[in-house]
Write a protein that binds this DNA or RNA. Structure first.
Length: 858
RNA sequence: GCGAGAGUGGCGGAAUUGGCAGACGCGCUAGAUUUAGGAUCUAGUGUCGCAAGGCGUGUGGGUUCGAGUCCCUCCUCUCGCACCA
């Protein structure tokens, strides 16, 4: 009996099936081929859109494919549940962040179910659960004991919008990554993780990550920013102070004609002479009040002030002036530079502006540079001049080494490696995060909370507004764990990137309340075989996770150096967004008249942006699922384009996906009864007639192509191949209907079954239903992934392209054995194009066996 | 400025050890069927041309029998970094 494709009924029927059958709940002790597949866990915020869907569908389709290939697949899911947005959203809505978060988690789980995306839910975790953050605290204490966690006062990034400190990584173009407020500086005492201890290893091990996208590695390399050079010490004239500078060009020391300190440099105050104090003070103040955004504009005029003091160039004893300027950054190197205007463009511009001397110390062979008339710095190679005993040496690494050795002997320099990477600031002054498990005691100083007293619970207070732990006395009033006298808890919470830097290990022991995780199990399943997530985490999350993994290795918790073997970064889905100057962001579906605001008819600003709630340009999967079904939404999302590429959402093509599923459904309905009792038989391609053989070829070719594409995440082309396979079945069916061909039942049965299995990871609902329709009682996931017959990949007849002077002129269909016979091919090809060659001389004939014949004529 | 990636029909995109450009899908055109069509089926659909044929993968050049693919030049776009000493 033929049935219509009632996707709603079908999808409701199977929605809980895979979970109930525990296909995604592997036995961790399994001895078979095992594979840890992991999607970056989500931040549970309201509703997921089709862009999120892409991420989960890549994972779900891959895991279903892997299961059918006999892997024991671990594919867990959890929630990155702490963080500012929860708090801000909670403030807006007047409910507790906890309530809001758990409601969202429930909603996410509902959406996963709707999508047919299945995980090992036994391992679910949420970072805001005390059972999780207890181990965050435990880890913090271990870091503290190993001096990987420390507290220091520093000038930190402060976001006035979020009322908290930010890590360097969270400041983008001088603005808060989250709320876009302009970031200011504050002098605060904060907790840091000593990621710089691992800078070199984090850099070196990037080379081990052969299956990571090159661009992610490049970004990390730039972020770590290693540079080699020297540390040089200068004495302030007439004072005891010394100032150190870092330079990558110690060979230009003789050309240093002034020194520049960052305005915030601690020695500025002490070094400045009395008569310069006023001007310098004004400049420092101005520099501090200026935002990083302004200071980072590279092409603006150089500004600065002379401190009135001088410093001695240790190489030649010359007295050179000390300046401050905002082009020198406190955070890099020592916050001070030796300025060599002849060979550094920035110093050159500064020298010209303030009329400071320019002394070349390297010049191109056979050319004399004149510091007084140079138009720009000379940053290239050449011969050393004006450099005392080093004159005449070729500028380059060898001379640098020689000079640094000499400086070291003289006692004012040494070679040095400097990193741009700075320690990870993890303190946050908000409520919804992991409390830092430390107690401040007047007598004992900083004392860690004893491990048996963990977790330090977040106080369960009514959540009224922006409120940090520092405003909750019930929380911070405590006794010192060491001496028992009244003390104060640390009121900072941890950056949520701490939570996400090791969650992939906790999945293995998510309910263990005795230890952070079972090391032997973690060592047997990790590193993660395949990690998938957005490119936006290229630096932050991935660098922190790598660091924490290395620290854990040194703590003997794990045995591996890197957490993620393979990384795949999927592209975001973008959608048009409209903004009205008056009315803010306007949902695209409300914009009826092109580019005009529906409220006041004013022209709108249009942009293509990543789907986000704030820009009101999200597309909910719900509507599509209601109208066309989950399978269509899944298929279309994966069909739209290559998953690593960013893509603009456009639902005009969605009908094509729906049409295909209807065609698949219809053809199976047509033959299911006829094929039910056909006994499967091994198909021998050689014995097939021509039409059957064509189907046999296509079946095997498509199976081969789809399998190859799945391995490379090329779902768009595997969907195309599945469609082609289906189209071939229609052709075959039409041939049978026309009575020109007798149906080969065992062959057709195999083809239909194979097609269903091949499409099943992408559209699991219809596949499961059709599988039963054609008479099977087991689940698709219990079946093996279809194999292909190697011999079917070669056709008996080959199309040979015939070219004249490289242009296609004819085609030739020849048996395979002829296709490889060069002489015969040439003979046959010549017959085809003889008339064209008349009166022309054939100079050369190129014959590529199995492919083409090209006549070169003149 | 530096680094990475991309540029192919009306649209999303296929094709990479150099060998039929435009698979698959959308859209469009025509026809069939239908009371109807945002349904289904069939055929067509890069472009110019009645045709033969010409032209076509951002630009210009090169290598080659043959280039979307390799090399050089330039242009445009996207992303990352950016006064890092």
């Amino acid at each position: 009996m033929s049935r219509p494709y009632d996707f709603k009924k079908i999808e409701d029927k199977w929605r809980d099936f895979w979970k109930e059958q525990k296909f995604f709940e592997p036995d961790l002790k399994s001895t078979g081929k095992k594979l840890y597949y992991l999607n970056m866990f989500p931040y549970p915020s309201g509703e997921m859109h089709v862009g999120h869907g892409r991420n989960w569908l890549i994972g779900d389709a891959t895991c279903r494919y892997l299961i059918m290939n006999g892997f024991t697949v671990l594919n867990p899911m959890g929630f990155d549940a702490f963080g500012l947005p929860a708090e801000n959203a909670a403030i807006d809505r007047g409910i507790h962040p906890k309530e809001w978060t758990y409601k969202n988690i429930e909603n996410f789980k509902k959406q996963f179910r709707e999508w047919g995306v299945v995980f090992d839910w036994r391992r679910e975790l949420a970072t805001c659960d005390p059972g999780y953050y207890k181990w965050n605290q435990w880890l913090f204490i271990q870091f503290y004991k190993r001096e990987l966690a420390y507290r220091k006062a520093s000038l930190v990034n402060w976001c006035p919008g979020c009322d908290t400190v930010l890590a360097n990584e969270q400041v983008v173009d001088g603005a808060c990554e989250r709320c876009q407020s302009e970031v200011t500086k504050k002098d605060l005492t904060q907790w840091f993780f000593k990621i710089t201890d691992y800078a070199q290893e984090l850099l070196d091990d990037l080379d081990k990550l052969q299956h990571w996208p090159e661009r992610v590695k490049i970004m990390q390399r730039n972020w770590i920013g290693r540079s080699e050079g020297a540390l040089l010490r200068f004495k302030v004239e007439g004072a005891s102070e010394e100032i150190e500078v870092f330079t990558t060009r110690p060979d230009t020391l003789y050309g240093a004609t002034f020194m520049v300190l960052a305005p915030e440099h601690p020695l500025v105050e002490r070094v400045t002479t009395a008569d310069r104090k006023k001007d310098v003070g004004t400049y420092v103040k101005k520099a501090q009040s200026e935002s990083d955004i302004k200071r980072q504009i590279t092409d603006r005029d150089k500004t600065g002030e002379f401190l009135g003091a001088y410093i001695i160039n240790p190489a030649n004893g010359e007295k050179i002036p000390i300046w401050i300027a905002d082009y020198v950054l406190l955070g890099y190197g020592t916050g001070a530079i030796m300025a060599v205007p002849a060979h550094d463009q920035r110093d050159f511009e500064f020298a010209r502006k303030f009329d400071l001397p320019v002394v070349p110390v390297i010049q191109p062979e056979g050319e004399a540079l004149d510091g007084a008339t140079m138009a720009e710095a000379y940053p290239h190679d050449g011969v050393m001049i004006n450099s005392g005993e080093f004159n005449g040496l070729p500028a380059g690494p060898e001379t640098i080494n020689k000079m640094v050795d000499s400086f070291e002997k003289e006692g004012y320099g040494k070679s040095e490696v400097n990193y741009r990477l700075r320690d990870w600031l993890i303190s946050r002054q908000r409520y919804w995060g992991t409390p830092i498990p430390m107690v401040h005691c007047a007598k004992c100083g900083i004392v860690p909370v004893p491990e048996e007293d963990l977790p330090v619970l977040l106080p369960d207070v009514e959540f009224l507004g922006k409120k940090g732990l520092a405003e909750i006395p019930d929380f911070y009033e405590t006794d010192c764990p060491k001496c028992g006298s009244p003390a104060r808890r640390d009121t900072d919470t941890m950056d949520t990137f701490v939570d996400s830097s090791w969650y992939f290990m906790r999945y293995l022991s998510q309910d263990d309340d005795q230890k952070i995780f079972d090391s032997s199990q973690v060592n047997s399943w990790l590193p993660v075989d395949q990690y998938v997530g957005g490119i936006e985490h290229a630096i932050l999350h991935l660098l922190y996770a790598r660091f924490v993994t290395k620290a854990m290795r040194d703590m003997k918790l794990v045995k591996f150096d890197e957490p993620f073997i393979r990384l795949f970064t999927q592209g975001m889905i973008t959608h048009v967004a409209f903004r009205c100057k008056e009315h803010g962001w306007i949902p695209p579906q409300d914009v009826k008249e092109k580019n005009l605001c529906p409220h006041d008819g004013q022209p709108l600003i249009q942009e293509l942006a990543k789907m986000s709630k704030s820009k009101k340009n999200t597309i909910a999967p719900t509507k599509i699922i209601e109208e066309y079904g989950t399978d269509t939404e899944r298929l279309y999302t994966l069909f739209m384009g290559p998953p690593e590429r960013e893509i603009e959402w456009n639902d005009e093509g969605i009908r094509g996906g729906f049409r295909f599923l209807n065609r698949l459904w219809t053809i199976v309905q047509k033959y299911k009864d006829r094929l039910k009792n056909v006994t499967p038989a091994k198909i021998d391609g050689e014995k097939l007639n021509k039409r059957d053989k064509q189907l046999w070829h296509v079946m095997n070719e498509k199976t081969y192509a789809i399998t190859k594409d799945f391995k490379k995440f090329h779902f768009n082309t595997s969907v195309a191949a599945v469609m082609e396979f289906n189209n071939e079945l229609y052709d075959y069916s039409a041939a049978c209907d026309a009575e020109s061909h007798e149906l080969n039942a065992p062959l057709l049965k195999q083809a239909i079954e194979q097609l269903i299995l091949l499409v099943s990871p992408i559209t699991p609902f219809i596949a499961e239903e059709l599988w039963r329709e054609i008479g099977h009682e087991n689940a698709v996931l219990e079946e093996s992934w279809p194999g292909y017959d190697e011999s079917a990949l070669e056709r008996d007849e080959k199309t040979i392209v015939i070219q004249v002077n490289g242009k296609l002129r004819a085609q030739l269909l020849v048996p395979a054995n002829i296709a490889t016979d060069k002489a015969e091919l040439e003979k046959r090809a010549l017959q085809q194009v003889e008339s064209r060659l008349e009166g022309k001389t054939v100079r050369k004939v190129i014959v590529v066996p199995g492919k083409l014949v090209n006549f070169v004529v003149g």
